Structures are given as C-alpha cells and as structure tokens.
Computed example of a mutant assay.
Amino acid sequence: MGEGTDEGTDEETREETPRVRRRGRTALLIATAAVLGLVGGTCAGYLIQADREPTELPSLSQPVVAQAKGAGPEPLSAAQDRRVKTDGDLRKLLIKRPKGTQEAEYVAGDKGWMGIADYAEEYNRPAGAFGDLVGAEFRRAAATGWTVGAYSVEVRLIQYRQEEKLGASDAAADGRYWANTKSGTHVWAIPGTGDGMAYVHTKPDAKPGYVPVYGAEAHAWRGDIAMEIWIYDTKPIPKAKIMDLAERQMERL
C-alpha cells in the first residue's frame, strides 16, 4: 500500500477499547432457518418410513481390515511445530534489543510480562478495556523496549486463547483503526503479513510546555498472537525505522 491519506475523527466520541466482533442478525436468521428446515425434513422422513415394509438389518460381523505395516508419520520437530514455540516463554519471541541502545526506563508490566490489568491500563478507559479484554479471551502479553537519547521503542506481543473468538486478528484490526484516526498519517503494508500495516504520523503531539513528539506504530498478527510496535522521537520518524522493526519482529513469529 502506498502513502495513506488523513482520516481524522474525534477520538473523544468513541471508547478506545478493543472492539469484539459479534454475530449479526443475518447469521441468526440463517441459523434459525436451518433448524426449521431440519425439523421439517425429519418429520417428513418419519411419515414416509411409517408406510414402508421393515428392512432386514445387515450382519453385525464385519471383515477385519489388516493394519498397514511400517511406522506412522514422523511427529513435527520443535522448529516445525508452531505451538511448541508460541506456548513457551513468549518473551523469547520478542525482537532483541539492538546493540548501542539502553533498556527503557519504563516498560508496562513486570520483567517483560504484562497481565490483563497491566495491558488494560494502556488504554484511556482501563475499566472498559479490562472487560473487553476478558471477552476477547486475552491470555497473556510480553513487552520489551529501548531508548537512544530521545528516540524510544516499545514492542508488545499479545496472545489470545481463541477458543471462541479470533482475538489476535481483532486486536490488530483495532490497532489499525485507531492509527488511521490520526491526521497526517502515512500507511504501508508490512510484507508477508496479509493485512499488517505500519504507520508514520507526520504531525507531532505538541502540548504547551512540552517538546513536540512524533510517533510511528505497526499492527499485525499471526496465529493467536497480535503484534504492536510504538516509536517516539522529537524529530520525524523515517518509514524505514518502523518497517524494519515490524518485518523483523513478524519473522520471529
């Protein structure tokens, strides 16, 4: 995708919490029609069967099928089985802090881990976010960060249980939505991620008494893990910075 256009909206009119997709009324009507069709077909079947002569049942004895010789398929190795990697220490999947940088003074969570309460605190309305994260089947999150002077980076991997909902893809979609609400934003697709996107905000966050701060971010997902990257600096952030981090982090997933 090429450079994006400004898509500003009033953020105060919406709650900045994860949006969980719900099944629409159309799906409900289709499901109801299917059930009615099944009941109607079953009743008709009973009426037809009642008028027929009884059919003799086949013998219960069946021929024995010989078992195939040879060993079964080889189990996947740890390198091939993605679940082995993602069910382990999630922090090991985080991109490594580059040489010459300092560990960030503050990264949300504790020792690289973020619980649901820690992650909810990152939203403007933590109480509402907490409830939405429970509904989205939040499992755990890991985070890392570093600084070089005024330049700072934070990377997060958020894992979802995904028993009933596609939490990771929904979370990435939520991040993309809010990134597009900021004016002066340029957008690029992250190669190899399907719908992953990187954003550079060309208009700084300027408040009286503070140095203007520029931002960039990236949102993507793979399997049950959503990725977030945030960059801040007192000068404009090049596209190459956010794209390089996003591509290298997604390669680790």
Rank of each mutant, 00 (worst) to 15 (best):
E3L: 11
T5M: 12
D6W: 08
E7I: 05
E7K: 15
E11W: 09
E12Q: 13
E16C: 09
P18E: 03
V20F: 01
V20H: 06
R21S: 11
G24V: 00
A27D: 11
L28R: 15
I30W: 12
T32G: 11
T32E: 04
A34E: 04
G37W: 02
G40D: 05
G41A: 09
G41F: 04
G41D: 07
G41W: 10
A44P: 01
G45S: 07
A50N: 10
R52G: 02
E53W: 06
P54N: 11
E56K: 14
P58K: 12
L60T: 07
S61M: 08
A68K: 13
G70I: 07
G70D: 06
P73Y: 11
A79H: 03
D87C: 03
G88C: 09
G88S: 10
D89C: 10
K92E: 15
E105Q: 12
G109Y: 01
G109D: 04
K111D: 15
G112L: 06
G112H: 04
G112T: 05
I116R: 15
A117F: 09
A117Y: 06
E121K: 14
E121I: 04
P126Q: 09
P126N: 07
G128L: 10
F130Y: 15
D132R: 13
V134F: 03
V134Y: 07
A136S: 09
E137P: 05
F138N: 03
R139M: 10
R140D: 08
A142F: 00
A143D: 02
G145M: 02
T147W: 01
V148P: 00
L157A: 05
Y160E: 01
Q162K: 02
E164W: 04
E164Q: 13
E164V: 02
K165H: 12
L166V: 01
A168F: 04
D170M: 13
A172N: 04
D174G: 13
R176K: 14
Y177F: 15
Y177P: 00
T181V: 10
T185K: 12
V187D: 07
W188G: 05
A189I: 02
I190F: 05
I190R: 03
G192R: 11
T202C: 10
T202W: 01
D205R: 15
A206N: 15
A206H: 14
K207F: 11
V211G: 03
A218P: 10
H219R: 12
I225Y: 04
A226V: 00
M227A: 09
W230G: 10
Y232H: 12
P238V: 08
D244E: 15
L245W: 15
